[in-house]
Design a binder for these strands. Structure first.
Length: 275
DNA sequence: CGTTACCCCTGGAGGC
DNA sequence: TGCCTCCAGGGGTAAC
């Protein structure tokens, strides 16, 4: 499942090829992903120049400039989405739902489970869109540190694991990175967020940043004209210490990794090391 | 305002 | 071997 690092690596993979190119056409082969695919997506951006590809949380934002005000494509990979650049005319596979045709290259969106999002927004500004406006802090920005985190957690009584994954608080931290960050900072996923000391918030903020940056660096080194986003085990060479390792020995203490359910999702942690 | 239940969808896992 | 059922999982939305 694509998380912030996979999305950022996808973005980096597009940068050498797409900005500055005029969109020639759009093919929609599915009626809907998470939401209905609007006809505007197939019509409005065509003939416009793609200025930039930005990222906000796990959303990719394609900026199409224009004399008349411009507009954006908002894209989210959901759980199983991936992007790749293919030569024009490449036959689409079963789950290749959308193509953006650029000169000499087609940006192809694949999403077997169709939890993704792809939509067109008119106008020069996109960050005030209802999907983006409520998003929390970017964990790789300067604004995110122990002091910020300590303040943000003050009123949250929910377990820290669930708050870490709350995109209205911090964007881009999914199940894998939440588990790995908590393991590295030796904090139990069950700890009520508001009970974390300033010192532990310092440690947690640092490890969240560290894990994300490591993963981006590992993925970034493998970017070519193929844009990876499948997020499969080991695809980013991130050393996974606890995620999906129920029953396996902890790398630090040798005790068994435990799996529990929090908010309907699996949490993996070492009950001995994480307090 | 914080928290929780539900829903979207399909591949893969497990049961028989 | 094959068919059927179950369910994870991001995140938005509605409801509590």
């Amino acid at each position: 499942m694509p998380e912030l690092p996979e999305v950022e690596v996808s973005r980096l993979g597009l940068l050498p090829y797409l900005p500055g190119q005029v969109l020639q056409g759009v093919s929609l082969r599915a009626p809907r992903l998470r939401h209905e695919l609007s006809p505007a997506l197939a019509e409005r951006p065509v003939g416009r120049c793609l200025k930039r590809v930005e990222r906000r949380g796990k959303y990719l934002l394609f900026d199409f400039e224009s004399e008349g005000g411009g507009g954006w494509i908002i894209l989210h990979l959901g759980m199983s989405g991936s992007l790749r650049l293919v030569p024009p005319g490449t036959p689409p596979g079963k789950h290749d739902h959308v193509d953006l045709h650029f000169p000499g290259r087609t940006l192809r969106y694949r999403d077997p489970r169709r939890f993704g999002t792809l939509l067109w927004v008119d106008g020069p500004v996109v960050l005030d869109h209802p999907l983006l406006a409520p998003l929390g802090v970017e964990p790789l920005s300067d604004a995110f540190d122990g002091a910020w985190l300590h303040q943000a957690l003050r009123r949250r009584q929910a377990p820290i694991k669930q708050v870490l994954m709350d995109a209205h608080c911090i964007v881009g931290v999914g199940n894998i990175y939440a588990a790995e960050s908590l393991f590295r900072s030796r904090i139990s996923p069950l700890t009520p967020a508001c009970r974390l000391s300033r010192q532990r918030c310092d440690r947690l903020a640092a490890t969240v940043r560290e894990v994300l940056a490591e993963s981006i660096a590992a993925g970034g080194s493998s970017v070519r004209d193929y844009v990876h986003s499948d997020g499969g085990a080991g695809s980013f060479q991130l050393i996974v210490a606890v995620y999906d390792r129920e029953g396996e020995p902890c790398q630090v203490c040798g005790g068994p990794i435990r799996r529990i359910t929090q908010g309907g999702r699996s949490t993996f942690y070492c009950p001995r090391c994480q307090r």
